[in-house]
Design a binder for these strands. Sequence first.
DNA 1: TACATACGTGCGTTATAATGTACATAGTTC
DNA 2: GAACTATGTACATTATAACGCACGTATGTA
Lengths: 189, 189
Amino acid sequence: MELEHEQIHKKIGRSLQAIRKARSLSLDQVADLTGVSKAMLGQIERGDSNPTISILWKIVNGLHISFTSLIEEDTPQVNLFRFKDVEPFEEEDGQYRAFLMVPFDQKRQFEIYTVEMEEGCSHTSEPHNEGVEEYILMTQGELEVTFHQETYVLSDGDAIHFSADQPHTYRNLAKSKTMYHTIIVYPAV
Amino acid sequence: MELEHEQIHKKIGRSLQAIRKARSLSLDQVADLTGVSKAMLGQIERGDSNPTISILWKIVNGLHISFTSLIEEDTPQVNLFRFKDVEPFEEEDGQYRAFLMVPFDQKRQFEIYTVEMEEGCSHTSEPHNEGVEEYILMTQGELEVTFHQETYVLSDGDAIHFSADQPHTYRNLAKSKTMYHTIIVYPAV
DNA sequence: TACATACGTGCGTTATAATGTACATAGTTC
DNA sequence: GAACTATGTACATTATAACGCACGTATGTA
């Protein structure tokens, strides 16, 4: 998010006004729906006031919208990522290679790697911060994932989802290279 | 969200304290990271104060977390998805097959498909709702994506990201089956 | 035309958000 | 033991959030 943190209340004001006008509601009507005073709603929309979380709570509940719809910008565009242009992170003497295909971005809240593991390779991942989750999408090969003393074997096309804030281990069970896509989702960051 | 609107600031206080303790940070350290006073952080954690959006913005940016992580409950678990157990959606006389590997979920805000396209297959996707975005991760083959009168050719391992609220067309350029993972991300509404 | 209503803004008042500082408590070191 | 440091809480102060009400403007109706 490129927005300076001092200005978030102005962004929220603009978003709130856009939503209100999209629904052809007056400040009075929104006041009735949300239980927030008309005068305060006007202040918020003009960016003249910095609302507390309880006021915003009333607004999102009254209007049936989400916090993110008040915060996020709209930036459609195309981003192309070339596998051959990406340098991998290598571990296990180069037997484990992680290519960061889609980097983390505040708006996105996740990042995507392509991972390659050579035959016999095993790799333990340190626990991520609390709330981080991981999705693995198998591309080729056979992968064993150990999580919470449980072992899961994934074949071509399989997928798995688990909390990545605990230690977990990957092992290539195939007689050749195993590949998969891994999506690391951060708690709404 | 089942929380009474009078209590949202108390829920946020509990979440903030849980995150702080999970990271073994003191109030002083969080104050340094976020630029919010130690005294205010204490008030927030104890539910003694109802913070403004600007204060919460400083906190989420300083700690690299999100609003939703301050509001939502935490339900970690493992979900395993087997390719062979998934029935595809078929189009283009069965030449285009989409397997829903990870279904949409309110908490998740995205869904994941594995798509297979036979040689010569072409497929136009209807525009999704405004704000929907799509990520394509190539598994095998060669895919042409047309978006906004622009054409992008993706090879093994490549990836692309674009707004899916406009019409877009996929075409398999390979002399055999092309496969890719597609992640459809919905705006939090 | 006058009048009524809708709408958004300005203003004064009250409660409280946010801060810096002091303090109490606990733990560590000499 | 004393001295020091870390930590969270209490308190006084200042700025402002949030409200109810009044007002100016625009629109519609008799």
